[in-house]
Amino acid sequence: MTTMIRARGLTKRYGDVEALRGLDLDVDQGRVLALLGPNGAGKTTAVRCLTTLLVPDEGEAEVAGFDVRREPTAVRANIGLSGQYAAVDEHLTGYENLVMVGRLYHLGKARAQERATELLDRFDLADAAHRPSKTYSGGMRRRLDLAGALVAEPPVLVLDEPTTGLDVRSRQQMWDVIRELVAGGATLLLTTQYLEEADKLADEILVIDHGREIARGTADELKARTGGERIEVVLADSEDRDAARDVLAAVAAGEVVVGENGRELTAAVRGTGTGDLLRVLHGFEERTVTVLDVGLRRPTMDDVFLSLTGHAAEATAGKDRARTEVSR
């Protein structure tokens, strides 16, 4: 299988800040790699290096068979890039935006117009084709931006957090569009903060933090590293904490986490979640532990990051905001 994106030892520094620390990645033709990490992890810096917008300080990278250092023009001719913010001209209509992109790719006037019409229809924007894009909703702008990345029908797509800031409906629409592109044979590098998004779209996930790889695998493999499903309990009385912890410990994969108020407990479970939940409920009944709430859920991105790095994603996002701004 042809490798369409390849990087080895990718490193980028901004003064004393090392945004990338020897990152390696591979994306085969027709596959999706999700680059997962919190704000400031180095995702956007990696994208900018791979799309020739930044020159890496160390390492090497190829996209569609072309070296990003020696052949940047060829790389640009073979990629479609959709950044974190929709790159559309608000004073042009959706149709005019796409025609402009086509002309910049030297498609010729007739072909650029043809592609604009095709893509507006494909992205459910035909009814708004001749409206100024400043009147578009956030989801419509994101779809128009993604359409612009496809005008030249590139073999490689790079989408940098394409659904950040979108509502649930708009995010689902974007996922549907991305699935369609992949089904059509596109090779995709997707950066995201959302484990759910990577879970639904990616063949493989590469988790990075502070510019370096900390884990890679499928979504299920990453979740398994956090203990799979987990049981969450809210006690009616903190005096039942020790008894509840003993019951949870019998099914837990690792330590039972107790909240600061002593009434909230969480335990990753080893076996089938529903079976373990039933055993816990029976154990609570036997020990007369009263609960206000109990539930079974799958790990979130925070659970994965807490397991892999020892800190939650939100904490990292706040702590590294300054580094993110530098990398942009």
Rank of each mutant, 00 (worst) to 15 (best):
T93F: 09
R141A: 02
V99M: 05
R115W: 01
R131D: 06
Q29V: 09
G42R: 00
G42K: 00
N78E: 11
D145Q: 02
G40K: 03
D145M: 01
D121Y: 00
R111E: 15
D57G: 13
A128S: 14
Y105A: 14
V151D: 04
R76D: 05
L146N: 03
A34S: 13
A61W: 02
E60G: 12
P38M: 08
F123E: 08
P72S: 10
Y95E: 14
R141L: 10
P38I: 02
D57Y: 05
G80L: 07
T73P: 01
R122A: 05
R111C: 07
T135A: 13
G80E: 08
H106L: 10
E58L: 13
V27G: 00
T52H: 01
T135W: 03
A61H: 06
L150W: 04
C49W: 05
L120A: 13
F66D: 04
E90A: 11
Y136Q: 05
A128C: 12
R103I: 01
L104T: 01
L120M: 10
M100P: 00
R103L: 12
L120G: 14
A129W: 09
D124T: 08
A116G: 08
T93S: 15
A34G: 14
G65N: 03
L107N: 05
G138L: 11
G108E: 11
P56R: 13
R31G: 10
A86H: 07
E62T: 13
T45D: 04
G65M: 10
R131A: 11
G30H: 10
R76N: 07
G65V: 04
L146K: 03
D124I: 00
R31S: 14
S133L: 03
G148N: 04
G80A: 06
R69A: 12
R141E: 02
R70K: 14
E118R: 07
V68N: 11
E60Y: 05
T117R: 15
V75Y: 02
H106D: 11
D121Q: 09
G80R: 06
L104Y: 14
A87V: 14
A152T: 03
R76Y: 11
V101G: 04
M100I: 01
G59C: 13
G37K: 01
N39E: 00
M100H: 13
G42F: 07
R141F: 02
L107W: 07
R142K: 14
G59R: 03
R122Q: 06
G42S: 02
P56H: 10
V88I: 14
D67Q: 10
R48V: 05
R69S: 12
R69V: 15
I79D: 09
L92V: 06
L104F: 15
D67G: 10
V32L: 13
L36S: 01
L98M: 09
E71M: 09
N39C: 08
R48L: 09
V75S: 06
A64V: 13
R141C: 00
V88W: 05
T44Q: 01
L25I: 06
D145H: 05
L144V: 03
L81V: 15
T135L: 09
G30A: 11
A41V: 07
D57R: 12
